[in-house]
Structure formats: structure tokens, C-alpha cells
């Protein structure tokens, strides 16, 4: 579980995050949504410890990140997996080497043990047989799955995904969403997903927080988002005709 209290972050005069307080529970997908420039990525980078913040606290299982010693922070980071928007695979390594990288860095496993674990997770993300390919030879969907495999290979407690569906076709995006959801439940980890994709919101959003201009405007789930009267949320989520119709049908069904 990750607890965030009164988080504030600025860049110079620009006040990006304005007192965010929320909790991300274990074993479910927690989604951060909001328009471009609303502070989603900054929030995610604060959670990861890539950005320092001026006020507030972020606690992992009750441990305040900013108060941890350097070694404790390193230990905590080795329990985090991250799927970057552009996958961020190491382009000088093969897919198998990318997946084995966290094991080489943080474990004392033998080469065969690392290969077995890499095979296992690559199979889990349906990438059996792509081991020797270079990242440049893989499609966008494959790269995302490799990034997920690399993020989970060291059995993390926390999984962070920044726009995991960006640049993917709708079918592949659903595959990635389902994979994230399955992995979250299977390994009972705390997953935080930063997304624009409304399909993801409807599919895997067990908890959703909506940011607007750095303020936590609304929080709920993919069930309650249909019923919300919050104008900012409805303007954002139901900006397309398709989702307005889906919402209408859902409310009608619910009333019957």
C-alpha cells in the first residue's frame, strides 16, 4: 500500500501538485487520469522518487520515503518495477538480456537460473521465442510486454506504468491492460497506472483518481465513474460520443 499525504511539488514559479492526498491499495490497479499538463507524470515521478517534493509525504507500507536512508531507498527501489511510456528498453541488449538485467544487478543467481526466470516471465507476457531479438526489431506492443516482463522479473511489490497503452492499437492496448490486471492480482502487488486511455479506465480501474491542474479533483472506481456528477470528470471521461452512450446505457440499466 502507498499512502500519499498533502503532496506539493513546484518547478520554479509553476505549482504543479497542490496538496494531493490519496491511498493506493495492494492487489488492485490504481489509475491516475487527467488531461495533459494536469500533473500526472510529475505525480508518478514523485512516487518513484525521481523528483523531490517540497511538502507532504509518500509512505510505502508505512515507511516515509523521504525519511529513508540512502541504502533503505535503494532497497525500496529494488522492490519497484516501472513500465515507461516509451518502454525504455536498453537498446544495446537483446530482449532476454533486458529482462535479465534487474536479476544481474540485484541477485546472486547463476546464469542458468536467470535464464530460467527470464523464460518464465517472457512466457507470462506471451513472448516465448523472442529472446534473441533486439528491441529495435520488436513491435510497439512487444516492447511494452518486454518492459512489463523486465518490471516484474524481480518480483516487485510495486508496479508503476506510465501511459502503457500510448501508441498501441486498441486490440493490443486491451491485451496490455489485461496483462497488467492479471499480474497485479496474481502477484498481489500495488499497481499504479498513469493513463489517458478510457478503455483502461473502464476495464481495469478498480481505483481511479482524477487530477485537474495539480489538484485531486475526484476519486472513485470504474463503477462509480458512471454515476459521478463531477463536471470536470464527466467533461474529460465522456468527451467522446461513444462513452456518453455507454454511460447513458449504464445508468438506464442501473435504474431498471
Amino acid at each position: 500500500m502507498i499512502e500519499v499525504k498533502d503532496l506539493e511539488k513546484s518547478f520554479g514559479d509553476a505549482h504543479i501538485l497542490k496538496g494531493i492526498t490519496t491511498t493506493f491499495e495492494k492487489g488492485q490497479s490504481n489509475l491516475i487520469i487527467g488531461q495533459s499538463g494536469s500533473g500526472k507524470t510529475v505525480f508518478l515521478k514523485c512516487l518513484l522518487g525521481l523528483f523531490d517534493y517540497e511538502k507532504g509525504s509518500i509512505a510505502y507500507e508505512g515507511k516515509n520515503f523521504s525519511k529513508l536512508s540512502r541504502n533503505e531507498k535503494i532497497d525500496l527501489r529494488s522492490e519497484m518495477g516501472m513500465v515507461f511510456q516509451g518502454s525504455a528498453l536498453f537498446d544495446s541488449m537483446t530482449i532476454a538480456e533486458n529482462v535479465m538485467f534487474p536479476l544481474r544487478m540485484f541477485t546472486k543467481q547463476s546464469k542458468s537460473e536467470m535464464e530460467d526466470r527470464a523464460n518464465e516471465v517472457l512466457k507470462r507476457v506471451n513472448l516465448d521465442g523472442a529472446h534473441q531479438k533486439m528491441p529495435s526489431e520488436a513491435s510497439g506492443g512487444m516492447q511494452k510486454r518486454v518492459a512489463i516482463a523486465r518490471a516484474i522479473v524481480n518480483r516487485p511489490k510495486y508496479l508503476f506504468c506510465d501511459e502503457p497503452n500510448s501508441g498501441l492499437d486498441p486490440k493490443t492496448a486491451i491485451v496490455i491492460d489485461n496483462l497488467i490486471q492479471e499480474i497485479t492480482e496474481e502477484f498481489n502487488i500495488t499497481t499504479v497506472v498513469n493513463t489517458h486511455d478510457m478503455n483502461s479506465v473502464m476495464e481495469i480501474g478498480k481505483k481511479i483518481i482524477f487530477l485537474k491542474d495539480g489538484i485531486l479533483e475526484w476519486e472513485g472506481s470504474n463503477e462509480t465513474i458512471f454515476k459521478t456528477e463531477n463536471e470536470a470528470v464527466t467533461n474529460f471521461v465522456y468527451s467522446s460520443e461513444l462513452f456518453r452512450k455507454v454511460r447513458k446505457m449504464y445508468i438506464e440499466e442501473d435504474n431498471q
Partner: peptide
């Protein structure tokens, strides 16, 4: 640019 350095830092490297 491709966030590979961020990936290293997130891993605690």
C-alpha cells in the same frame, strides 16, 4: 531522451 537513464535510476542503480 528515451528514459533509459530513468529506468536505471528507478531500479536503484
Amino acid at each position: 531522451v528515451t528514459e533509459q537513464i530513468d529506468a536505471l535510476e528507478v531500479m536503484g542503480i
